[in-house]
Amino acid sequence: MRINSEVIWLVISFILTLMVFSYLLGDNAFFRFASGLLIGVAAGYFTVVIIYQVLITRLVVPLMQGSTLTLVPLFLSGLLLLKLSPRLSQLGSPAMALLVGVGAAVAVGGTVLGTLFGQVKGALSFFDPIAGASGSMALRIVEGIIFLVGTLATLAYFHFGARERRKGEGRRRLATISVVLGKVFIAITLGAVFAGVLTAAITALIERSDFIITTIMSMVR
């Protein structure tokens, strides 16, 4: 009888799923074996992908094609590999510096042009008469004010308004109000996020359960 490879993989997946589900009964060797297997396979797969997708495609092939500029990343990659040695790890600092500098620039540029400009524009779009031409302008303005206040209160809670001010009752009250409002919006937002996490986890449970039942039923048939 020729055993289909797909069946073998199916059986392997089924057994591994049950091994992990056994954690519901308590920590055991099966669960730990499955965890170790996961780490090893993931590490091995990652190494293979890096070798093929980075080392070969980005270093070896361009060098073979005569690209002299590739010598720079090759040299820097060699320096970075020295990070594995405690004594020579300092030599990998220039490569890390390049990585960190470029990463910081990418983050700064994207943040400024992507999030800051875009989100501020989005917060003010409620007050745009042209964009709100289709609906009720008053309602949009009310919505806009609510969302703007919520955004500012959340921002204020995280960065500016959490500390008490000493001078003047007025500023203190304003900070207190913004803190309270910010807390309300954050609590609602985090509640929505947690509900989303629960939803995703339940979906994963449904998917795994579906897989187990489907596998069992296919084996029974």
């Binding site: 992507g114 875009g118 989100q119 524009k121 989005g122 917060a123 779009s125 937002t189 929505a192 996020v193 989303g196 996490v197 939803t199 995703a200 979906t203």
Partner: peptide, 17 residues
Amino acid sequence: VSAQAAPLLHPYFASGQ
């Protein structure tokens, strides 16, 4: 996206990005 990413992604949709 996953259901857990939706709340933090919606502002970008609301802003048209």
